[in-house]
Design a binder for these strands. Structure first.
Length: 695
DNA sequence: GAGTTTGAAACT
DNA sequence: CAGTTTCAAACTC
């Protein structure tokens, strides 16, 4: 089987017929050389797509991301890898963070990574006993091993997208990387080189993610170009291959490669970096996002676990007094604090790419994202491609399928909801929300809800409140994690869709929103439950439909609807340039113009870091947080989860009737209407049964 | 910035 | 399930 596998690999490379052939040949040799590696064997025995039970780690890591499902395509070893590898990797973005413990109690070294803090490593890594702590060779191999193992881990995640030959080849490359490490454990390497190697590995990985993420967005320029000749899975596989090759090559050099590789390697770190920059992967710049965001969730996980284990959360100050008559809430808090209600913590089903984000937020502002892939504040994308790429990563695409299932609603939703025109007095609020530091975070002003109700935008959005919030008696903070989780669970128990996106779209690419022609406003999208406006005429942001940039539908119970994006009677305003019933309705047009202006303003602000939104309710994100090609949501808009207007059966079952208000949550029946000709974009529909039932 | 309006969320 | 209350965002001045 091995031989056959390798044959396939070589065959594939030949088919590709690229200049990489020689490199590939070397890799192939490496594969043959180390094909009996235990790791190799293990990988080979793994099925690319292997359903597994929800992992414990995801339950403790990111409990708030209820919606985020565990990767059902992950391999059994994934959990451990995630905990150990990603936690370490995470430290790359925040080396200052104190070490935290993994589930098994072993210390996870936060210094492992680019910083290569050998001292800390010495103290925290018991495994280092096998070699003298801080010994260069150990560091060198450790890094590569981590990379290789992490890659293997990733392979499982993308396994569903890579099938057959490709997945096998990817596994082989990952294996080769591991084999390489095994072959260089005893090699000496200077600390400087080790550091460069660490950076190399990190860059390779980030590049891999960043590079391949574009490929997942089929409409991205890169993907399109790629699709002309190769499918995304293949492209991704190639990226992986390149990344591994780069690591292997440079690692060999940095370690003073005993073999031939060293001859081609730069002797100075600077040269090494230069070499890296000239690697096949052209996406090195600003690509630290991927891995770092990936690591974030694990960091959070670590933090969460730590909190739970040491009971720090319970020790946090409690607000048990009922200062405002909110007895139930206080009771809830009390119960949670006493731990009597903690068993109900929803399992965090953090998927691999889910729950990214927030590195900056958490590290700079102390704000942690509750959801899985929340607001991340990374260097502003400078190009649309970057934007798409970064957003893809930040949006927490959980599965390859999700990536394939396009969802554009988010973009428009975001645009629709975000008023970030700093020059507009009326946008002052949003301006403050956006923050002047580029941090697009929510800032609530809750006074009585303790930020534990959906009234609170932060809470509803799945993010912790931050300092800039003007809230009072806020419990939506990481120190009150358990309370937050329990409350969330409680709310979801009443209404499973409470944290689900409110606006659903049937199609309408973002381009229609951000393009030159605003006439293509996403009227095909509809507010899930519909609004209930009485006085605003659905022309103000009081109206969730309007705020979401969608027209009203039959589900709405609004009165005097004048929604510029489409009225509930089926007519569409000027936004559609069709079926305009009242050409003289200047009010609607004015509203629409205002809306468009806000969108333009939004676009002008696109230099800001994209804001990945993490559906608080992860049970959805896990299935359908399929991202779109655009940044984040806004105050009240939430990424939709279900495919189109269809919610997962398991949710629809108890969800529809579970609404506390008994409000309709059933899919609108007139979604298409005059725009029925629009394509229906498949969205992330659960490909597997609800894992919630497995908890 | 304070006060008002509004409609969703929560409660009964 | 409907009516009412509570709440905080949106809006106005």
């Amino acid at each position: 089987m091995m031989g056959e596998r390798c044959e396939s690999s070589r065959g594939e490379r030949e088919v590709m017929g690229t200049p990489e052939r020689s490199k590939n040949s070397q890799i192939a040799n490496s594969i043959a050389k180390f094909e009996d590696s235990p790791v190799f064997s293990f990988l080979n025995n793994l099925s690319p797509i292997k359903p597994v039970k929800p992992m414990h780690i995801s339950q403790t890591i990111n409990p708030l991301s209820f919606s985020s499902l565990p990767s059902v395509f992950s391999s059994p070893h994934l959990a451990s890898l995630r905990e150990s590898r990603f936690l370490r990797r995470h430290s790359l973005s925040d080396p200052s963070k104190p070490e935290f413990s993994s589930d098994d109690g072993s210390k996870v070294d936060p210094s492992m990574g680019v910083t290569m803090n050998l001292d800390e490593h010495k103290e925290s890594n018991p495994d280092a006993n096998c070699k003298k702590v801080g010994e260069p060779p150990y560091v060198c191999s450790k890094l590569v091993v981590e990379f290789a193992e992490t890659l293997s881990c990733e392979m499982d995640i993308v396994g569903s997208g890579l099938s057959g030959l490709e997945s096998k080849q990817v596994a082989e490359y990952a294996c080769t990387s591991s084999a390489f490490v095994e072959n260089h454990r005893s090699v000496n390497m200077s600390e400087t080189k080790a550091e460069v190697l660490g950076n190399t590995i990190g860059n390779c990985w980030d590049s891999l993610i960043a590079d391949s993420s574009d490929l997942f967005i089929f409409e991205s320029p890169k993907a399109k170009a790629c699709n002309e000749s190769v499918d995304p899975a293949t492209a991704f596989y190639r990226s992986i291959r390149n990344a591994i090759q780069n690591v292997q090559s440079f690692g060999a050099a940095a370690c003073g490669e005993r073999g031939n590789a060293a001859e081609n390697m730069p002797s100075q770190p600077e040269e090494g970096i230069g070499m890296i920059e000239n690697m096949p992967l052209q996406n090195f710049s600003g690509v630290c996002r991927g891995m770092k965001r990936r690591s974030l969730v694990f960091e959070m996980a670590g933090g969460h676990r730590k909190n739970m284990e040491d009971g720090s959360a319970r020790d946090s100050p409690l607000l048990l007094t009922n200062s405002d008559g909110n007895a139930s809430l206080d009771k809830q808090i009390a119960r949670t604090k006493t731990g009597s209600d903690c068993s109900g913590l929803l399992p965090g089903i953090g998927l691999h790419l889910n729950a990214l984000a927030a590195t900056h937020e958490s590290s700079t502002s102390g704000r942690l994202l509750i959801g899985s892939s929340s607001s991340a504040h990374f260097p502003p994308p400078t190009t649309s491609q970057d934007l798409l790429s970064s957003y893809l990563l930040e949006s927490g695409v959980d599965t390859f399928e999700s990536l394939l299932l396009e969802d554009h609603s988010r973009g428009s939703g975001y645009i629709a909801n975000e008023d970030i025109n700093p020059s507009s007095p009326k946008k002052r609020r949003r301006k403050s929300v956006q923050g002047g530091d580029g941090e697009s975070c929510k800032r609530c002003s809750c006074k009585k809800s303790k930020c534990l109700k959906l009234y609170c935008e932060c809470f509803a959005a799945g993010v912790y409140c931050v300092e800039p919030c003007a809230c009072i008696d806020c419990f939506n903070k990481s120190v009150h994690e358990e309370i937050v989780l329990t409350t969330r669970k409680q709310i979801e128990s009443r209404n499973p869709l409470a944290f689900a996106p409110k606006v659903m779209r049937t199609s309408d690419s973002v381009s229609e929103i951000i393009g030159d022609d605003f006439a293509n406003t996403p009227a095909s999208a509809r507010h899930k439950r519909g609004c209930n406006c009485k006085k605003s005429g659905c022309l103000k942001k009081y109206c969730e439909c309007y705020q979401g940039g969608v027209g009203c539908s039959i589900n709405c119970r609004c009165e005097g609807c004048k929604n510029a994006f489409g009225r509930k009677d089926g007519s569409c305003a000027s936004a559609e340039h069709e079926d305009v019933e009242d050409e003289n309705d200047t009010t609607e047009k004015a509203a629409l113009d205002s809306y468009k202006a806000s969108i333009h303003d939004e676009l002008d602000q696109r230099k800001r870091p994209p804001r990945a939104y993490v559906p608080p309710s992860s049970s959805y994100s896990g299935f359908g947080n399929s991202s779109l090609a655009f940044p984040p949501p806004a105050p009240k808009w939430r990424p939709h989860l279900e495919g189109g207007d269809e919610m997962p059966h398991f949710l629809a079952g108890g969800g529809g009737g579970g609404s506390p208000n008994r409000k309709r949550v059933t899919p609108p029946q007139t979604l298409t209407g005059p725009r029925s000709s629009r394509k229906l974009v498949l969205q992330s529909i659960p490909l597997f049964p609800s894992l919630a039932s497995n908890q």
